[in-house]
Structure formats: structure tokens, C-alpha cells
């Protein structure tokens, strides 16, 4: 691959996810070296940058389960030319969304008050803590998302394929074997 004149800036984050997608991203192994020739990282678990600045590509793992997730997602959308949802949770809510058929009040009640063994349980109300949303949402329900890489997690090859397609200015496409939802 020919190195572009200017490195593309990439930011990544995990919202209501398990970092599994990030682990898979790292699984691209030695190709990571190839990648850092082409891109530089903005906010990401790989860097120490706290807020996402102007970027070419933003990669979001995980869905939205609380107010902070929404803030971070919006910051990414505002700063990234291309936003990619990566993994089942970002795409359809995934495991965290399994709580969606219960009411949030009932869940908080159960977790902090009713559960056996809790004495004087109270629901944490520290303003530092982000409040949970009543339902977990996939990210495309809240901001426009440009590309999706499904999988739980997507394979390193799938991530690599989408990124290299994009770097090459192509419409990313996963064929048989690379597209999977589990």
C-alpha cells in the first residue's frame, strides 16, 4: 500500500461495550505497524487523549446506556469525518440491551434495594456518576453512522479490511467469512 502524504487521524472509544472489539482491533497484530504508518491516533485507549479532536475516522464500540455515552458519542460525531460503529453492541445494543424489556426503575430497585442481602441500600446519586438511560440504544439511533463492522467481536481481518478499504478510498465491503454477527 502506498503511504498517503498526510497521516489520517483516528479516534476510538468504548461506550457500553466490553473492550472486546478493541482487543480484536489489536489482533491485527503486526499489521498494526503497517497501520501506524498510515494513521495517527487521537482519543483512544491506546493514547492518553481525553477528548476527541478533529479526526478523519472515529470508531465506536458499544451502545448507549448512560448520559456520558451520549456525550462521548456526540463529541465523536462532531469531530470525525467518518464514524464507524464496531461490534454488536454499537450496532444493535448487544448484551447490555438485554435489559430493555425491563423498566429501569424496576432494575435499580432490584439492584439497590430489593436484592437479598442488601441492607439500607440506596441508589447512588453522586453528580459525578452518569445517569443511566431508560433503554440501551444502538448508536445509529442517536447520531448518523457512516459504516458498520458487525461481529461480537468482528475479526481483526474484518476490521483491517474496512480500514484499508477506507484508507484506499474505496467503499468498504466484507465478503463471506468476514461478515458475521457473532
Amino acid at each position: 500500500m502506498n503511504a498517503p502524504t498526510k497521516k489520517l487521524r483516528v479516534a476510538t472509544t468504548s461506550l457500553a461495550g466490553c473492550f472486546g472489539c478493541h482487543m480484536s482491533f489489536l489482533d491485527i497484530d503486526e499489521r498494526l505497524l503497517e497501520l501506524v504508518q498510515l494513521v495517527e491516533f487521537d482519543r483512544s485507549p491506546l493514547t492518553d487523549i481525553k477528548h476527541c479532536g478533529p479526526c478523519d475516522i472515529g470508531i465506536i464500540e458499544g451502545g448507549l446506556c448512560n448520559a456520558e455515552n451520549v456525550h462521548v458519542l456526540r463529541e465523536f460525531r462532531a469531530n470525525c469525518k467518518i464514524l464507524i460503529a464496531i461490534g454488536a453492541c454499537a450496532i444493535n445494543g448487544g448484551l447490555p440491551a438485554q435489559r430493555n424489556h425491563l423498566s429501569l426503575s424496576a432494575i435499580l430497585e432490584e439492584v439497590y434495594h430489593a436484592q437479598h442481602g442488601l441492607v439500607d441500600g440506596f441508589i447512588p446519586n453522586d453528580p459525578e456518576l452518569p445517569l443511566p438511560l431508560d433503554k440501551v440504544h444502538p448508536i445509529h439511533e442517536v447520531v448518523k453512522v457512516d459504516y458498520f463492522i458487525p461481529g461480537c467481536p468482528p475479526s481483526a481481518d474484518a476490521i483491517w479490511k474496512v480500514l484499508t478499504d477506507l484508507l484506499a478510498g474505496k467503499e468498504p465491503e466484507l465478503g463471506h467469512g468476514l461478515i458475521h454477527y457473532d
Partner: peptide, 17 residues
Amino acid sequence: RALSQARQMTGRDDTGA
């Protein structure tokens, strides 16, 4: 509005809520 249940349960109404 999606935060209203949580506000109610925690009694919070600060800007972060």
C-alpha cells in the same frame, strides 16, 4: 426524557442529570 426515570430514582436534577 430517557433520563427521567433515573432522575426520579436518584432524586437528582443537576445539569449532569
